[in-house]
């Protein structure tokens, strides 16, 4: 099923177009978002600062990838099939979306492993980045399932806003700001090395995804959007 889903996605877009979007364009976009404000005052490229911003980039790319893959289902008009028998379909979706989130994740994984940090911290950051990838892929998959079929623009609206909504937390726009509400955003604790609370937050996100899945599986008040 995973292979067939991936095949549908790649054929819809064209192989070369898909590869170009997923690998070089997504990496260059990450670079642009990091550097657009960071290098404005003539400073060089702060590699360690960039590395520790995985708390913004990994969830952002994971959410975008997981929600974005539902576009194919919207085009195909297969909402009913997914809504009536969600479990295997959602697993297949969840296993498909890492393909699109993997290049930025791999970049950060390599940077974390090469970072001039104590070994234990490097491993903790790597485990945290992996946890974020998995949990936000799960959340994105469930969000697409719950809201993607409700409105023709739901997926697009989400994709257009996720980069900027997450940007209010610690990341390329506000740097390592960890005061107040910013802590609620992904990476709010891990950027200062407080991993336990960050894991708790990920657990809460997982619960939220579970709740959304239950809610989304109930018969709906509104018809699904069909093209």
């Amino acid at each position: 099923m995973v292979r067939l889903l991936l095949l549908a996605r790649v054929r819809q877009e064209g192989t070369s177009q898909f590869l170009v979007r997923v690998v070089p364009l997504s990496l260059l976009n990450v670079l642009l978002l990091f550097a657009v404000l960071a290098t404005a005052d003539g400073r060089g490229f702060d590699l360690i600062g960039f590395t520790l911003q995985y708390g913004y980039f990994v969830p952002m790319t994971a959410l975008s990838a997981a929600v974005g893959t539902w576009e194919v289902e919207l085009v195909a008009g297969v909402a009913e099939e997914f809504l009536l028998r969600p479990s295997r379909g959602l697993w297949a979706r969840l296993l498909t979306s890492p393909v699109e989130a993997l290049p930025p994740f791999a970049l950060f994984a390599v940077l974390i492993l090469l970072a001039p940090l104590p070994c234990a911290q490097r491993l903790a950051h790597l485990a945290m980045a992996t946890g974020m990838l998995v949990v936000f892929l799960l959340l994105g998959t469930v969000l697409g399932y719950c809201f993607g079929f409700r409105h023709e623009k739901a997926v697009n609206n989400f994709l257009a806003s996720v980069t900027w909504v997450l940007g209010f937390g610690p990341g390329p726009f506000f740097g390592a700001r960890t005061s107040g509400v910013a802590r609620l955003f992904p990476g709010g604790f891990s950027i200062e090395g407080d991993f336990a609370l960050e894991w708790l937050k990920l657990a809460a996100v997982t619960l939220l995804a579970g709740g959304l899945l239950w809610w989304g599986s109930k018969p709906r008040r509104q018809r699904v959007f069909t093209r």
Partner: peptide, 19 residues
């Protein structure tokens, strides 16, 4: 294009606050 407006509004607000 609602997604466009949402994206641009959020982006402008975020960048203005961030700068």
């Amino acid at each position: 294009t609602s997604s466009f407006i949402i994206g641009i509004t959020l982006q402008t607000a975020l960048l203005t606050l961030a700068l």
